[in-house]
């Protein structure tokens, strides 16, 4: 597949994530849109890693060029899992204190 198709797909997914973060007020859905953006980036990293691998694969079938991209995706998933556990704990705390998960209530942190 031409690499441009993957770039456009990942950009579209990332933009949908951005729109979701800006449009919705439910903190859980905002959080889910952040996950969507992370996944768009992961998809693009894997596509680029396969692009670089394809060049080396033509001459040497056993080369491991491009493996760093896939390991980056693995570490992004690790960080995302840690982030979700802390973030959902914060949302649960927010709900316990305000009985709502509306992000607009968070401007109370000002005073």
């Amino acid at each position: 597949m031409p690499i441009q198709y993957y770039i456009y797909l990942a950009l579209a997914l990332f933009s949908i994530g951005i729109i979701g973060v800006l449009v919705r007020r439910n903190a859980i859905i905002v959080f889910m849109c952040i996950e969507l953006m992370l996944n768009a980036v992961n998809l693009l990293l894997v596509a680029f890693s396969k692009m670089h691998h394809g060049v080396a694969y033509a001459t040497d079938k056993a080369s491991t060029v491009g493996i760093d991209g896939q390991l980056f995706v693995f570490f992004i998933m690790v960080v995302a899992a840690a982030e979700v556990s802390v973030g959902l704990a914060i949302i649960v705390m927010l709900y316990r204190n305000t009985h709502s998960v509306d992000v607009n209530f968070l401007n109370r942190l000002k005073n």
Partner: peptide, 28 residues
């Protein structure tokens, strides 16, 4: 830069667990 570049589909061994595991426990 991107003209004519394609992502390698259905081939290549870097996505397999053995290769990734070796890199993960040596370089990373």
């Amino acid at each position: 830069e991107l003209a004519g570049k394609t992502a390698l589909m259905k081939e290549g061994s870097i996505g397999l667990i053995g290769t990734l595991g070796k890199a993960l426990f040596s370089n990373y």
